Computed example of a mutant assay.
Amino acid sequence: MQTKTLRILGTRGVPAAHGGFETFAEYLARYLVGRGWRVIVYCQDDGEGPVFEDRWEGIERIRIPVAAEGPKGTIVFDWKATAHAAGFSDLCLTLGYNTAVFCTLLRLKGIRNVINMDGIEWRRQKWGTAAKLWFWANDWAGCWLGNHLVADNPGIFDHLATRVSKRKITTIPYGADKLSEMPDTPVLERGLAPGKYWTLIARAEPENSILEIVRAFSRRRRGVKLAILGRYEPERNAYHRAVQQAASDEVVFLGAIYDPAVVKSLRFHATGYLHGHQVGGTNPSLVEAMGAGNAIIAHGNKFNRWVVGPDARFFSDEESCAAAIDEVFDDQEALGAMREKIIERYDETLTWEKVLAQYERLLLDWLR
């Protein structure tokens, strides 16, 4: 019997240490290996040297050293990974479309390639004109060059359906662990009391509504804290400086935390989560908050509304954010009911078990 083989491109590799796609790649690879697949993941290493191979948790890793840093390094890595994968006939799963033009090589070789099209990157405020044009062009390229596309949210499906046939798109959301018990030591070490704080976990960028949330939260005494995770450099970044200047003494900036166990503890012992992302599909941070049983106050765009369901509270600006915070914080009964409904929504749709099983079914179709 032929071995079921998959090559995963588009991430910095496994184990996950950088972001949502890396976490997804790790979970999917381990899941498939446990179900008899051969899985090869392309991994970006810092520095120079030849490409080499090793194994981790039963997953084969193609490790590609890249001397360049930042976006340039990512582009170099993606090209080398795609060129390497083009030397084989195995099914590929490409995570993200930021360098989708390189998938021309796979298409020319007749190699089947499923592309997860991620969010609408070219709409993000943080990019300049040249970067937006690059992402826009690669968004189109991914639609044309992929044999099949994955949308992580119905809103992304609708976007892709303006470019390709709906038959070419499958909607599969992102997943997250369900947290049932986590140590409170990381919480206490950071001066927080379990059940007496909310979290906000996001890159410090205007499109994530952080300034609006901090201003809304800081309008009056809350009796709870807002713990913000992320890197802030107020001496170099005017937006970071504005956020910190708007914060009351009940807002705590914890810095960038990359230890998954610490982040999970902070999520689990929080009462709720404030989510301001305005652009994108199914955001991993939002799903992870749901898996932790948090109450949710989120920006009310169509992406977030689909993910969290109708029982969260939503806002569109500073005023409506302040109103939602006032309502939720002053009604403990409603807060408890919201948390129960959000867990139900998570259990129905967003568990890793359900998400990964959907991916395997899709990949099996393309193996055939």
Score class of each variant (00 low, 15 high):
residue 158 D to N: 15
residue 121 E to T: 09
residue 100 A to N: 03
residue 346 Y to L: 13
residue 78 D to L: 08
residue 126 K to V: 10
residue 264 K to D: 13
residue 186 P to G: 14
residue 25 A to M: 04
residue 368 R to M: 10
residue 261 A to C: 10
residue 266 L to R: 08
residue 275 H to G: 09
residue 365 D to E: 14
residue 194 P to G: 13
residue 128 G to V: 05
residue 99 T to G: 03
residue 1 M to F: 03
residue 125 Q to M: 06
residue 332 Q to Y: 00
residue 195 G to A: 13
residue 100 A to L: 04
residue 28 L to R: 04
residue 73 G to C: 06
residue 177 D to W: 09
residue 84 H to L: 08
residue 194 P to Q: 11
residue 43 C to S: 00
residue 57 E to I: 12
residue 134 W to R: 06
residue 234 P to I: 00
residue 30 R to E: 13
residue 175 G to R: 01
residue 341 K to M: 07
residue 208 N to K: 14
residue 292 A to E: 04
residue 205 E to G: 06
residue 362 L to H: 01
residue 28 L to P: 05
residue 183 P to L: 09
residue 309 G to T: 11
residue 41 V to N: 07
residue 34 G to R: 06
residue 128 G to H: 02
residue 196 K to D: 15
residue 266 L to A: 08
residue 32 L to Y: 09
residue 29 A to H: 01
residue 53 E to N: 05
residue 204 A to H: 11
residue 331 D to P: 08
residue 31 Y to R: 11
residue 242 A to Y: 04
residue 80 K to I: 01
residue 280 G to W: 00
residue 45 D to H: 15
residue 163 R to N: 00
residue 80 K to D: 03
residue 318 E to D: 10
residue 329 F to E: 13
residue 224 V to G: 08
residue 352 W to S: 11
residue 236 R to A: 12
residue 81 A to R: 05
residue 7 R to Y: 15
residue 254 L to Y: 12
residue 223 G to A: 09
residue 54 D to R: 04
residue 114 V to P: 02
residue 196 K to Y: 03
residue 269 H to N: 07
residue 320 S to L: 01
